[in-house]
Computed example of a mutant assay.
Amino acid sequence: MIGYWEGVNTFLAPGVYRPQEDTSLLAAALSDEPLPPDASVLDVGTGSGALALEAARRGTRVTAVDVSRRAVWTARINARLSRLPVRIRRGDLFEPVRGQRFDLILANPPYVPAPNGGLPPRGRARAWDAGRDGRLLVDRICREAPGLLRPGGVLLMVHSALSDPERTVARLREAGLKAAVTRRSRIPFGPVLSARADWLRERGLLGPAEESEELVVVRAELPV
């Protein structure tokens, strides 16, 4: 299937996360970063490769990683269609790039709180389910990303306000980075959150009449 995102034709295999509002919000944050043409960029959890391709269009050296075979296949096809050099690897989060350092890390991890938080997500749900607090991978990124940044390097991560951005900022600061929420956007509930709205209200994460979700971008920089 060929999809359309930000004016670019892209291939999307069944079960691969479709670029949505969170992708656009992170792409806008990426556009604000003053990257030199030879900067080294990592897109972790690349999905269709949309963000990796945005970075590659700026002449940067891009590595993209995803745990899903279908996502890796999709991202490789999109890189070929776009005629952009992106190095794409399959693996669990940062495992394929251990020992490397990057000027910029992009992360759009799963972040939706899930009622079956004690069980690992399966199938398509791996693209959004993230434990009962929505931080199954967010916390791992907070722990592991600082060790992959060069001095002056930046992490840009998007996730929902339902998964506690203040905690994200605090953990990144504890790791020695300068961190803050730099972008916010409120969007209507999609199918997943609509189906979980009552459960989220029971947990006190949503108000009685709340029918929209706030997305945030957290920017964290490793001091020089």
Rank of each mutant, 00 (worst) to 15 (best):
T23K: 07
A27C: 02
I105P: 09
P19R: 02
E95D: 13
L119Y: 07
L12I: 15
A114G: 08
D103T: 00
A79W: 05
T63I: 10
T23G: 12
G118L: 07
R80Y: 10
G45H: 01
A52F: 00
A39F: 04
G91I: 02
R69H: 14
L12Q: 04
P36T: 10
L104M: 03
E95G: 02
R83Q: 14
R61E: 11
R18S: 15
A64Q: 06
E33Y: 03
L104T: 03
L93G: 00
A29I: 07
R101V: 06
P85R: 14
S40G: 13
R90V: 02
T60L: 06
L53A: 04
G15V: 08
A13H: 06
A28G: 09
L81N: 11
P121D: 07
R83G: 12
S31N: 06
D32E: 15
Y17M: 12
A50F: 01
R80I: 10
L81H: 09
W73S: 13
E21Q: 15
A28M: 06
L26D: 06
R89H: 12
P85H: 12
G59E: 04
P113K: 07
A114D: 12
G91C: 09
R69P: 13
L26F: 11
A125K: 00
A55V: 04
V41D: 08
D92K: 07
L104R: 04
L106H: 00
G117W: 01
P109I: 06
P85S: 14
G91K: 05
L81I: 10
A64G: 09
R18Y: 10
G49H: 01
S40K: 15
R58Q: 05
L104Y: 01
A50E: 02
R98T: 11
R18V: 14
A107P: 00
A52Y: 04
G49V: 04
P113A: 11
L35C: 13
D103Q: 08
P115K: 06
G59H: 08
P120F: 08
R122F: 04
R98Q: 12
G15E: 01
V62M: 04
V41H: 04
V97P: 08
L106P: 00
L104E: 04
R58V: 03
L30G: 05
I88D: 07
R76H: 07
S40W: 14
V112Y: 05
R70M: 12
T60R: 06
Q100H: 14
P19L: 00
L119N: 04
S24P: 03
D22T: 09
P115H: 01
R57F: 05
P36V: 08
R18N: 12
T74C: 15
P96H: 06
D103Y: 07
R57D: 02
S40Y: 13
P36A: 15
F102R: 03
S82D: 13
P85A: 15
F102W: 03
D66P: 12
L30S: 02
A64P: 04
L26Y: 03
A79C: 10
R18F: 11
R61I: 11
L51A: 05
D43P: 08
G45M: 00
P85F: 12
S82T: 04
P19E: 01
F11D: 00
E54R: 03
P121I: 07
